[in-house]
């Protein structure tokens, strides 16, 4: 099975090379593509110099648009599995194969790397954790699937989901909404226990001050999505 790692990157000059090194160490057999979301720092130059596989977006699209570009790339190049992996160094490449395994075995369509199953490694702030628990409950209520780490950007998708996401991917709050979208499309979602690191450099695109505002907006967006989309009968 051909696998592609999608690395969305916006202003990650401090961590993008170490991220690629991490991947080359634990998954040297897997292809990757960095989606440079019109970074304003030296991310592009650093990547060009390293000769990495890069797609440079001409304008900034945000995490949703960036990751979706990766899915389109995966679709166009016929990959069987696509993995989302952050370019800021928070994700750990040693779990990549764990993430791929259930899909390779045909047990799941989507796998999500979850920090909260074994509760090891960086657990994020208390406020964030509360928000994640809330969203997890909301998603359970809206479409019946229980996912513990709803905002985890470390996830893998099979061919069917690659095609789905390439066509439609939430632009504003992709991680939780993508779970609902997948579930409504009939996907089997499995969570894999992983550890993550704390952000080493650069700035998160979700500031802690805006967390509550984010939470309200996401909740309404998820509800709106559920109301306006039908569940596909398999």
């Amino acid at each position: 099975m051909r696998t592609l790692i999608i690395i969305p990157a916006y202003n990650e000059e401090g961590s993008i090379l170490t991220t690629i090194e991490d991947i080359r160490t634990y998954a040297p057999d897997v292809d990757f593509v960095v989606i440079n979301d019109c970074s304003t720092d030296n991310t592009k130059e650093i990547l060009m110099q390293a000769g990495a596989n890069v797609v440079n977006l001409p304008i900034n699209l945000g995490i949703g648009g960036g990751v979706q570009t990766g899915y389109q790339y995966a679709l166009e190049n016929g990959y069987d599995i696509a993995i989302q992996f952050d370019g800021d160094g928070q994700h750990m490449a040693e779990y990549l194969h764990d993430l791929m395994a259930p899909i390779e075995r045909g047990e799941a369509n989507i796998t999500i790397g979850s920090r909260f199953i074994k509760k090891e490694g960086f657990q994020s702030s208390a406020l964030r954790r509360f928000g994640i628990v809330f969203l997890s409950g909301l998603i359970k209520m809206l479409c019946g699937v229980r996912v513990h780490d709803v905002t985890s950007g470390m996830r893998a998708a099979d061919r069917k989901m690659i095609a789905l996401y390439a066509e439609n991917y939430a632009q504003d709050y992709p991680e939780p909404e993508a779970i609902v979208a997948a579930n409504l499309a009939g996907a089997v979602i499995e969570e894999i226990p992983v550890q993550m690191r704390e952000r080493q450099s650069g700035k998160s695109s979700i500031h802690s001050l805006k967390s509550i505002y984010y939470m309200i907006k996401v909740s309404i967006a998820l509800a709106a999505y559920r109301i306006t989309h039908r569940r596909v009968k398999s």
Partner: peptide
Amino acid sequence: LIYFLKKKQLTTKYAL
């Protein structure tokens, strides 16, 4: 409103 949301002619951002 719901019709436009369904038809994706309104992003959730503005729909809010």
